[in-house]
């Protein structure tokens, strides 16, 4: 099949881009401010201070190695919003029924949204990575604590994680009838593990102060530690904040191939051996799986008069 046939039509792409345009611009500005502009400002103040090692550059370094909690959560929320708006808004406003009456296949309708959302999430990172590379290359006099490789690994890593968030949200908004429902579903899936862990931990601390359970001992605390590890792994925003596979790499060509070891002192697992590319591949595979699932679900969806019925057993059951 020629490439032009595989991509959804230009009209759909243009329409979907137009729908989330404002959100995209805000997101792009946010990323630009957090990365390139901060870096530029730090360089300027570094030069002004005649080479004294300012904390400013450390901030940029930290961003690239592991985003602050605020950045990570904000990026995930943006990605959720984009996923929810692109599909959920059509449903809420009723324009989905118009689309379905047009000569577009359901596959094209959903794939156009996926493509546009993907572009809108990745473009800010790519553009900023380019700009930051440019800044690095043109400021030879500055002693940067990180290299070009770190910049690009940050970009690629963030795009991948946010793509995963997007796929989850797209699926949620295809399944759920309304925007609010989709947003809720996505938030639960993505933030839940950590939220749950925090809930449990806070409660446990309370119990400990009342003397029911002694800290640091016993099965409960083992499980709690286990759960904290699981929570760390399963809570997606934390992947942006403290993903163990992100390592400072010195150049874009020579990637550090060292295996990353994770040692958890108190937990049952002594260490988990993980290779970054395996994890990335897994993530990419998950994204594809979620997207396919969303397509399948959308293909089987039936819109009733209220435009929010899907797979009603009564509807599907009465198909001859």
């Amino acid at each position: 099949m020629p490439l032009s046939k595989m991509l959804p039509s230009r009209a759909l792409l243009r329409k979907d881009w137009r729908m989330t345009r404002s959100l995209f611009l805000v997101f792009a500005s946010f990323i630009t401010f957090a990365s390139t502009l901060t870096l530029a400002y730090n360089i300027v103040s570094y030069r002004a201070a005649e080479g004294a090692w300012l904390g400013g550059l450390r901030a940029s370094h930290r961003l690239l190695e592991s985003s602050s909690g605020f950045h990570g959560a904000a990026m995930v929320l943006f990605a959720i919003m984009m996923g929810v708006v692109s599909m959920g808004l059509e449903r809420d406003k009723g324009t989905l029924s118009v689309l379905l009456g047009m000569p577009y296949s359901r596959r094209d309708i959903l794939s156009s949204k996926a493509v546009v959302s993907l572009l809108q999430i990745s473009l800010p990172f790519i553009a900023n990575a380019l700009l930051m590379t440019l800044l690095l290359r043109t400021n030879q006099g500055v002693n940067f604590p990180f290299g070009v490789g770190a910049i690009w690994s940050w970009a690629v890593h963030s795009v991948l994680v946010l793509t995963f968030v997007l796929c989850v949200t797209l699926l949620a908004s295809t399944v759920s009838g309304k925007m609010l429902g989709a947003a809720f579903l996505a938030l639960v899936i993505l933030f839940f593990p950590f939220g749950m862990y925090a809930l449990v931990h806070v409660n446990a601390t309370q119990w400990q102060t009342t003397g029911l359970i002694s800290h640091g001992q016993g099965l409960f605390w083992h499980f709690s530690d286990l759960f904290s590890d699981a929570a760390n792994y399963l809570t997606v925003p934390l992947w942006l904040i403290d993903f163990p596979a992100v390592v400072a790499v010195n150049s874009i060509v020579h990637v550090d191939m060292n295996v990353i070891e994770l040692v958890f002192a108190n937990s049952v697992w002594s260490f988990v051996v993980v290779h970054p590319y395996v994890l990335y591949l897994l993530l990419a595979g998950l994204c594809l799986g979620l997207y396919t699932w969303a397509q399948k679900w959308f293909a089987g969806t039936e819109l009733n008069m209220m435009m929010n019925c899907w797979r009603c057993p009564a509807c599907v059951g009465s198909l001859a």
């Binding site: 230009r10 009209a11 243009r14 329409k15 137009r18 406003k93 118009v98 009456g101 047009m102």
Partner: peptide
Amino acid sequence: YLAEAQYYYLDFTVSETLCFYRET
């Protein structure tokens, strides 16, 4: 198709709506 209940992309201008249909 023309119905009493109409659904449009409310944020689009008239010309953008026409453009979408033109390309469709």
